[in-house]
Simulated scan of single mutants.
Amino acid sequence: MNYSGFMGGLFALAEWIMRFSVINMLWIVTNLPILLIVFMMILTPSNLAIVVQAVPLAILLPILFFPSLTAVFATVRDWILDKEQPSLVKAYWKHLTRNYKNSFFSGAILTLAIIIWVIDFNYFKELDFLLGLLMFIVGVALYVYIMNYVSLSVHYVMSKKELFKNALLITIGNPLLFFSVLLGNSLLYYLSFRIWFLFLFFTISVSAFLTFFAFFRFTLRVEGKAAKLKSR
């Protein structure tokens, strides 16, 4: 049944709300062990407890977090490219299982980078304020790098070496994309801390959508410029 005008807009809005909420809930269900550990860290903020809980957290990141995040990105990519999805659950599960091996190994490397950053940040912030600030900026860049890496991994067929290299080039070489990803996600996370149900239904899926959309627009510009150079 086709709708137009106000009813058509209302139907389209409801469809997008359903898409975001279903995929977000699937991600949350997949990452329940990780979320439980993070919740325990918040409840027991002692240094010893955090260190003990950080071990299973580090193990679960490549097993659950990165494969599920990749599945969310691949799913929203289908939406942006207007690919047919008969079932949101099946689409998410297909991307999760199909990309699991690659996202697991990539996630292990990215988890190691996160661990090194956490250790360095905690060390340098106690040593000197400016060094701590510098490490904070490095952490922000690492976050954008990870988001760009996942976007690349679901959009292009490349070796892991090429993905890591190109993600670095995109992160440091395109300030517009960098700040688009950073500011869009920062605003989303800020709102999610204030409005709790956003995290439950929208935060991760909307974050993936905003990030991949910015990345996709960037790739279109690059490919357009490359096509013009070839035609000369």
Results as ranks from 00 to 15, higher is better:
3 Y>E: 11
3 Y>H: 14
3 Y>S: 11
4 S>K: 11
6 F>A: 09
6 F>N: 07
6 F>P: 02
8 G>F: 15
10 L>P: 03
17 I>H: 12
19 R>G: 01
19 R>V: 00
20 F>T: 00
21 S>K: 15
23 I>F: 04
25 M>I: 11
25 M>P: 01
26 L>I: 10
28 I>W: 03
29 V>P: 01
30 T>Q: 02
30 T>A: 06
30 T>N: 03
31 N>M: 08
34 I>L: 15
36 L>M: 12
37 I>V: 13
38 V>T: 13
39 F>K: 14
40 M>R: 14
41 M>S: 07
42 I>L: 11
43 L>Y: 09
43 L>E: 13
43 L>N: 13
48 L>R: 10
52 V>P: 01
53 Q>H: 07
55 V>G: 05
56 P>K: 13
57 L>Q: 09
61 L>V: 14
64 L>G: 00
65 F>Q: 12
68 S>C: 08
68 S>R: 07
72 V>Y: 00
76 V>D: 02
76 V>Y: 03
77 R>K: 15
80 I>W: 07
80 I>Q: 15
83 K>T: 09
86 P>H: 15
89 V>Q: 13
89 V>E: 07
90 K>A: 06
90 K>F: 05
92 Y>I: 13
94 K>C: 08
94 K>M: 11
95 H>F: 06
96 L>M: 08
96 L>V: 14
97 T>N: 06
99 N>D: 15
100 Y>C: 04
106 S>C: 11
110 L>Y: 09
110 L>S: 04
111 T>Y: 15
112 L>T: 11
113 A>Y: 06
116 I>F: 08
128 D>M: 05
135 M>I: 03
137 I>A: 11
139 G>D: 06
141 A>Q: 09
141 A>T: 15
142 L>V: 02
144 V>G: 01
144 V>M: 02
144 V>K: 01
145 Y>Q: 04
145 Y>K: 02
148 N>E: 10
149 Y>P: 03
150 V>S: 04
153 S>N: 10
155 H>F: 05
155 H>K: 06
156 Y>S: 12
156 Y>G: 10
156 Y>H: 12
157 V>D: 09
159 S>D: 03
160 K>E: 09
160 K>H: 13
164 F>W: 10
165 K>V: 00
165 K>E: 00
166 N>M: 10
167 A>W: 02
167 A>C: 07
167 A>Y: 02
169 L>H: 09
171 T>L: 03
174 N>A: 03
175 P>K: 05
176 L>I: 14
176 L>D: 03
178 F>K: 02
182 L>Q: 08
184 G>S: 13
185 N>D: 01
185 N>I: 01
188 L>R: 06
189 Y>P: 01
193 F>E: 15
196 W>T: 15
197 F>R: 07
202 F>I: 08
204 I>Y: 03
206 V>C: 00
207 S>Q: 06
207 S>P: 04
208 A>Y: 00
208 A>E: 00
212 F>H: 15
213 F>W: 12
213 F>P: 01
214 A>N: 04
215 F>P: 05
216 F>N: 08
216 F>E: 04
216 F>A: 06
217 R>T: 00
219 T>N: 04
222 V>S: 09
225 K>C: 04
228 K>S: 11
229 L>H: 14
232 R>H: 09
232 R>F: 07
